[in-house]
Computed example of a mutant assay.
Amino acid sequence: MLPWVVRRTRLPLLSTRCPDCRAGSFTTGQGRFRVNANGKLLDVWLLVRCLACDHTSKLTVHERAAVGSFDPALLDGYLANDPALVASWLLDPFMARRHRFALDWKGAWRLEVPQAGFDETWPVRIQVRFQDPVPVRRDRLIAQGLGLSRNEVRSRVKCDASLRRSTIAGFTFVLMPRG
């Protein structure tokens, strides 16, 4: 079985309207949090920047949370702008729903395919794993990995799930020989 891996190369862009210029793409840039203390309560925001006008917006992560309710390591991560913590909040579906944004993954991922050819006996079984929840259509992913047209993928690939549907989870497929 050949392993393929879909990896994130950068954080995806946020698709939402800018309140200043009405453009539709935001970035987390370097990935920064803003932590504000008000007595014994903390507010934590993830800062995002409009790609068109540089307007900075805040996405609420925690609002009026008691300081004692935070794990010290988590609080240190917010204060140090931990990139893994930025990614975890940005990729959280609840965060996207709450702040009404979608993730634009264009150019933010790559498919790693081993260089080994198909010298094995046919049919060839290939397992695809996802490092992050990158939504991609199965037929497009397979076509990119094999260098085939999507029509040829549909005729030569056997998969338990629909090839035309997007997925964020791993799957396995079987590549049949030509002819």
Rank of each mutant, 00 (worst) to 15 (best):
T60A: 15
L146N: 11
V35H: 03
R150D: 04
G117F: 00
S25G: 07
A96K: 08
I168D: 12
P123T: 05
A66D: 00
P19Q: 15
W122D: 05
G170Y: 10
F130R: 02
L46I: 09
L85E: 12
A169P: 07
A66I: 01
A169M: 14
A65F: 04
D20G: 03
V136S: 05
T56Q: 11
V48W: 01
R10F: 01
S162A: 13
T60E: 13
R17Q: 15
D43Q: 04
P72I: 02
Q30M: 02
F33G: 07
H99E: 13
P133H: 07
M95D: 02
T16P: 06
E152Y: 00
G145D: 04
F26M: 11
E63D: 09
S69M: 01
D43N: 12
A108C: 13
F101P: 03
H62F: 14
A65Y: 02
R34P: 01
L59P: 09
V61N: 09
V124C: 10
R8G: 12
D43W: 00
R129F: 06
A102F: 00
Q127W: 06
A84N: 09
Q115T: 11
R154L: 07
P135D: 14
P3A: 13
R49F: 03
R7I: 06
E152I: 01
L103N: 06
V136I: 15
V157E: 03
L41Q: 08
L75M: 13
R138C: 04
K40T: 01
R17N: 13
S166C: 09
R140A: 09
T60L: 12
P135K: 12
D92A: 14
A108Y: 05
Q144P: 06
A96T: 11
F173S: 15
G68C: 04
S149A: 05
R150N: 04
C159N: 06
R164F: 05
L41C: 00
R22P: 03
K40A: 02
L11D: 10
T56G: 00
L90K: 07
F173G: 14
R98I: 08
L79K: 06
A80Y: 00
E120N: 00
R125H: 14
R125Y: 01
L175Y: 02
S88F: 08
S149Y: 09
T121G: 10
R32F: 12
T172W: 13
G107T: 11
N38V: 10
W109A: 15
V174M: 14
V48A: 15
R17W: 08
A161W: 10
A80L: 07
L141P: 00
R100G: 09
L91V: 01
G39C: 03
V35A: 00
F173T: 15
P72K: 09
G107H: 02
W122K: 05
A23L: 01
V48D: 03
R138E: 07
L141I: 04
D132K: 04
K40F: 02
R140K: 15
D160Y: 13
R49G: 13
L46Y: 09
W122E: 11
P123R: 10
D43E: 03
D82S: 11
G147K: 06
Q115L: 10
W45M: 00
L47R: 11
D82A: 11
G107A: 10
H55F: 03
P123H: 12
M95V: 12
G170I: 08
L85D: 03
M176I: 02
R137H: 04
R138H: 12
R22V: 10
